[in-house]
Structure formats: C-alpha cells, structure tokens
Design a protein around this nucleic acid. Structure first.
Lengths: 196, 196, 196, 196
DNA sequence: GATGAATGAGAATTCATTCAT
DNA sequence: GATGAATGAATTCTCATTCAT
C-alpha cells in the first residue's frame, strides 16, 4: 500500500510535464530578462498558453516566487551540506561561491530581493533557515579562529550580496573575476593574526 | 536663407529655464522611484507638459541618460579633485565613499547600470575618464605602498559597485553600515605589510 | 443494432446522482452569487469536474435555465395549490408572498429575468401556465368581488415583480418590510367598495 | 475680467468635445447594455480609443459613476422644481413619474444601485438631497391630508424602485403601462377618507 | 515653442468551453 | 462516463510617444 507523498493528489502525467516545462521556461526567461519579463514570454518558451500558466500560478508573482524559492532551496541545501563538513570556514567559502554562482546566472534572483515576492512565508522561512545556517557556520569559524569576533551573520549576507552584485555587472568575458573579490572580502574577515 | 547649426543655436531664455527644470525634476523623480517612473511624473514635477520633455529628449531613455550622465559627471569631478590631492589612497577612499553615497540616494543610477542607457557614447566617455582617474590614483597609491601591485582599476570599479549594491539593500534601517564593508574591502587591497 | 433514443435513455445510477448534485450546487451558487458565478464554482461545490457539467448542460446558460426553471416550477406548483383552494384572493395573496420570498432568496432568479435565458421554450411554457393560473385566480377573485374588473393577469405579474424588486433592495436590514408594500398594492386592486 | 467657473482650467475645445462625446456614448451604451457593457464599446461608439476614456476616467467605475451621477442630478433638479410648486402630492407624483421614466430608459441606473459605484460621496450627497426633498414633499402632503401619516420617505423610495423595476421588465410595446401601477401605489398611500 | 490630448501596443488576468487521459 | 488540464477570446488598465491647437 503506497501513500502518496503530497497532500493533494498528484497531477496527471501530462499536467506534471507541463508544469515542469512552465517552471523550466520561467527559470530561463526570468534568469535572462529579469522580473520584468512577461508571462507571455514564459508561456511561449514553455509552449503553452498564458492561461495555462495562470491556472497553476494565479499571479505572475506566484510564478516568480516559485522560481526564486527553488533557487533559495538549492542554496539552503548547499548550506546544509556545509554544516555537515568539518571546516566551517571552508564551508562558508564554498556556500558563498556557490550562491554567487547561481545569483550571477539568474537576474530575477537579484531583482526580486526586497520586493513583495520576498515577503512570502515560504521564502521567509527559507531565508530564516539560511540565516541560521550562516550563524552556525560563523560561530564555528570564530571558534576555530578563522573569523574576527565582531563579524555578524548579517555582515556575511551583505558581503555576499555585495560581491554577487558586482559579479552580475561583470562582462560575460570576465565572469569569473569575482572570485578574487570574494577572496579580498573573506580575507578581510579573518583576525589580523590569521591573515595570509 | 541659412539654416542655423541646430545643435548650437542658443535656447530661448524660457526654453533654457524649462530644460533646467526638467532635468531637476527628472533627477528627483528617478532618484525616488527608479527607472520605472513615468515621463508624466517628471513633467508634472517640472511643471511642464510631457511634449516639452519629448522635444528636448526624443525618448525616455535620452532623459534618463542625461540624468545618469550628470551623476557620473559629479563623480568624475570628485575624481579630479582627488587627483589634485597629495594622498592618493585617501583620495580613492573619499571618492568611493562619495560615490556610494550618491548611489544610495539615487535608485535610477543603480538600476540603469547594465541597461542600454549605459552604452551611450557620452556615458562611455565619462566612464573612461573615471577609469583613467582611478588608474592614476591607483598607480600613485601603489607607488606609495598603500595598495597591492596586482589590483586593477576594474577591481576598484567592481568593488565600488559591490559595496554600493549592498548599501542599497541596507537602507534605511542601518544606513551607514556599508562603511564597515568598504573598510574591509579597502583593507583587503593593502599590501600584507601595510595591514593595520 | 438499434440506436437508443438518446433523450430518454435512463442515466446510469452514478450519472443520475451527479446530475442531482450539479443542480443542487448550481441552485445554491447562483442563488448566492448571482448569474456572474462561474461554472467552476458550481463544479467545486458539486464535487464534480467542470466537464461533467458541460456534458449535461452544453452551455452555462443551459445550466442557469435549468435552475430558473425549477424555481419557476415551484411557483407554478404553488399556483396549482392556490387554484385548489376556495378563496381565490387569499390564494393570490399567498402565491405572491411565496414567490417574492423565493425571489429574495435567489439572486439569479431576478438577474436572469429579461435575459436570453428566459426566452427558452421550457420557461416560456411555465410562464404561460403561471399566467393561466393567475388568470383563473383573478377571474374567480373578480367574481367574488375582491378585485377590480380592469385588473389583468399581466398587472399581477408586474406588480409581483415590482414588489419583489423592491424587496431585493431592502435586504437584509429590513427584511420583511416588503409585506407592507404588497399590502398597499393588493389593497389598490380591490374595488373601491371593498376597501378595508 | 472673467473668472473661470471651474477649479481647473477649462479643457481645450477639442478635448471638451471629446469628453462630451464620451459621456454621450457612455450614457447610450450603458443605458442599452447595462453595467456589463465594456469600455471598448463606449470608446467605439464615441469614436475614440479606449485610452482616451481612461485618461478622463481612471477606472470603468469612474465613467459609470459619471453617467449615474448625471441621471441622479436630473432627478434632484426635478425634485427642486417639485418643491417650488404648491401642491406637494402633485409634485411627488410628477417627480416619481419623471424618475421612473429615466429609470426605464437606462439599464445601468438600475443595475448600479447597491454596487460600489453608489457609495461614492458625490452620489451619496445627491441621494441625501433627494431623500431630503422627498421628506419635505411628504411632510407637506401629509399636512394637506393627501398621504397617510405612517408613510415614510424610505417607503416612497422603495415604492419608486418597485414600480420602476416592473416598468423595466415591461415589453417595449407596453412601455407606458407602469403608469397604472404607480396609480395603484399612490392611491394606496392616501388616507382611506381621501381615496378616489 | 509649449501644451496636454489622443492613441497603439502591450500587460495581467478571467472564464466558458474543448480535449486528452 | 468522468475528470481536470488547456486555451482563445475578452477585459481592464498603462505608458511612451505623436499630434492638433
């Protein structure tokens, strides 16, 4: 006897496929054009009518939120993996790099920060979990003497955001130059004694 | 009957005044509402008709470009002043702080980066001049031993942009927290020997 | 192989049950929300898919007509009962009050009057039967000296409609004030000699 | 030195003409099709683009309100004239007939009652003035012994609405039959002694 | 020259109805 | 037979830009 995993009955196979196509298309379109992209563009890329999208996502913001949520979930997942590792500083480093990477590949992720979309409970929850993860990593890194005592989790978020924003502006030709900037920033967080 | 050189014919006094009012209004409106602000809003604040704006600025982007250009000019001007000073590192520091300040106070300045507006020759020229100024300041700072040898002018621009972006997200609760981030970044640019 | 007469083939038991549930749901939903209610709402309340509704009722108007028809049938039934009574005037009185009551409780009944829905043969037939009943009651009431000679069945319908419309506006603060208005109207139909 | 009559400067001649055309078209279209009529229909009838309508009337409801307001103003005007006359009962009679007349000619007037449109201050004010007028006429009519003491202004409104609604349903062929119904109703309001 | 009126080209969203499973 | 997914055709509203005065 198998119990279905979802509260609601699973979607029909074709609907499931369409939903996936819509989400894929949305991810691509929003990534490329930012949150100003139209639902019609997403629909065209997905090969469905706009009404089909509105059936699953009552408003454009709902669609956008779904895309952003997935991005955030991915990062949180990476965060959990970082927590499982031994070296907190290394974990923080990797988490930030991975996050910036996905930030750079997705315009809407950046543009949606600070909009109403981000106020949704789902996203706030994920954000809270990510904050908690950073807090924990930071505490461990401090204990290991890898990070200055006065650095806060908010600082990390902000510096993450800072480097990510700069990375976004870099010409595609120099897309990876941001690693050096993150180096500088992370280096600046170490206790003076631990500077390389 | 000779055709006057259109570009250079001096504007009538009232037209001159209108142009100034339009630019002032545009600066304010775009600063407050970002590039999504409508031309009608600008016209209302300027106390002129929309058509008057379109007479001077054939498209909305032209108007936006004029505003951004002025912001950039201000920064370039600050850069020239920095060049005139003795301490290059100090000049660089001030220039960046001043720039971030104006960035934070003007939504459209940030939002227009990376859009077609920024590709205009005028802006590219100013950008080039700013780059040259930074280059020079950087060279002097290196000579003075205040900056690592491997730091480039692009690095400065990017780090400027990085901290500015973060600063934008901080508003308005922790207005000035970005100064700490810039401290970290600038500190990271010093040669190891010169670290505080 | 003979083709069964489509109209009369008895429905399968489950189909029969579904049909009843659809009609019940439609009655409730249209009563509460008026003719603007969506088919999807009816489907949800009935616990069936929208396609199931469209199988039985090719268009939304068909569904609406079925609901209105039933309301009208109920009134006609009341009319038949009135015919069976001895006092025609009293029967007319009761019939009108009963009709207004159901009018007030069902937004769609009112809203559909005067639309294409009401032109359907089924409804026209019922309307004709109701007219005939009123005609008969009226004739008897006149004979009994309870109604003026010049009053027509159409007058009754119209006055019914008049009071019902006003009653609809009264809701819900002064629910039952319409009884007074009907009193006035009915009193106005009596011969001068018979006035209270 | 002439003072302009309006707060805002008067519209340009062509705009004035267009505004009039829009209002005329709206009056016609809403009268014929009710409040469900689309702005596009009004625009087409007026010979302008829909955007032109939305420039003057930010929402469809604003347009509708303008139409209804004018209808109501006309009635209030008639009410003022009735107040100026000597015979209050006659004035009330005329006012009601005149109101029903315009009601019958305009579907939207009826349909908008009880919607959000009617909650607008402008309309509420007019409604209040009309109520006051009716109150005054009623008081005078009572004093003259033409109306029963227990009749209220609300009763008048409701009975007005009742007959008007019925009138609306009458076939165009019998469009004037409602006068008889109003006769019945008004007769019902007289003291028994004064019945004709 | 200046003005504000007019508009075409969208944008999000809705819903009766058809179709694939 | 039943279902819910898909959609085309509307509908309200917006805004940069052009035009008549």
């Amino acid at each position: 006897m198998t119990t279905p995993r979802l509260e609601e009955r699973p979607l029909r196979a074709d609907a499931q496929r369409n939903l996936a196509r819509i989400l894929d298309a949305a991810r691509e379109v929003f990534a490329e054009e930012g949150i100003e992209a139209t639902v019609a563009e997403v629909a065209e890329r997905a090969g469905v009518g706009t009404a089909t999208i509105f059936r699953r996502f009552p408003t454009k913001d709902d669609l956008l939120a779904a895309v952003v949520e997935q991005r955030l979930e991915d990062i949180v997942q990476k965060g959990r993996e970082a927590l499982a590792g031994k070296n907190a500083m290394k974990g923080l480093d990797r988490l930030m790099r991975w996050g910036i990477e996905s930030y750079v590949r997705d315009r809407c992720f950046c543009e949606s920060t600070g909009t109403a979309v981000f106020d949704r409970p789902n996203l706030q929850e994920l954000k809270a979990e990510l904050d908690a993860i950073i807090q924990e990593l930071l505490a461990r890194a401090k204990k290991a003497g890898d990070v200055r005592r006065d650095v806060t989790a908010t600082d990390i978020s902000m510096l993450f955001f800072a480097v990510a924003s700069a990375a976004l502006k870099l010409e595609p030709a120099h897309r990876d130059a941001w690693h050096r900037y993150l180096d500088i920033v992370l280096d600046g967080l170490r206790p003076a004694a631990a500077r390389r």
